[in-house]
C-alpha cells in the first residue's frame, strides 16, 4: 500500500486517498473558444507516462484537500508531494 505524504497532514496510507489522474492536464478557460483537438486532449487524451508522473490525489478521509504527487509509475516510488496551489518546478 502506498504511503503518501499529505502536505497538510503528513504521512498517510493510500486508503485515505482517492486518485485523480494526471495533474498536468489543464482545463481550458471558460468562455474561450477551444479547438476540438484541445478539448479532446483535455477530456480524453493522456500522456500515460512511464516514469515520473505528476498526479492528483484527494485526501478524502482526511483534510479533503486535493494534492499533487510526483510518483514513478514504473516503481510506485513517490519523490515529492505538493499542495494544490504550489508550483511544481
Amino acid at each position: 500500500m502506498l504511503y503518501i505524504k499529505c502536505p497538510h497532514c503528513g504521512m498517510r496510507p493510500q486508503i485515505e486517498f482517492s486518485y485523480g489522474g494526471d495533474a498536468s492536464v489543464k482545463r481550458p478557460e471558460l468562455n474561450k473558444d477551444v479547438s476540438d483537438q484541445d478539448w479532446d486532449d483535455f477530456v480524453y487524451n493522456r500522456k500515460s507516462l512511464r516514469g515520473k508522473h505528476l498526479e492528483l490525489w484527494q485526501h478524502i478521509s482526511g483534510c479533503r484537500q486535493w494534492i499533487k504527487v510526483e510518483r514513478d509509475t514504473s516503481t510506485h516510488e513517490i519523490s515529492r508531494t505538493f499542495k494544490a496551489d504550489e508550483e511544481v518546478a
Binding site: M1, L2, Q14, I15, Y19, G21, D22, S48, L49, R50, H53, E55, R71, T73, S74, T75, H76
Partner: peptide
C-alpha cells in the same frame, strides 16, 4: 489498484 502504473506489482488492499 486505481492509479497509473507500469510496475506490474500490486498491493494487498
Amino acid at each position: 489498484d486505481g492509479y497509473n502504473s507500469y510496475a506490474q506489482r500490486g498491493n494487498l488492499p
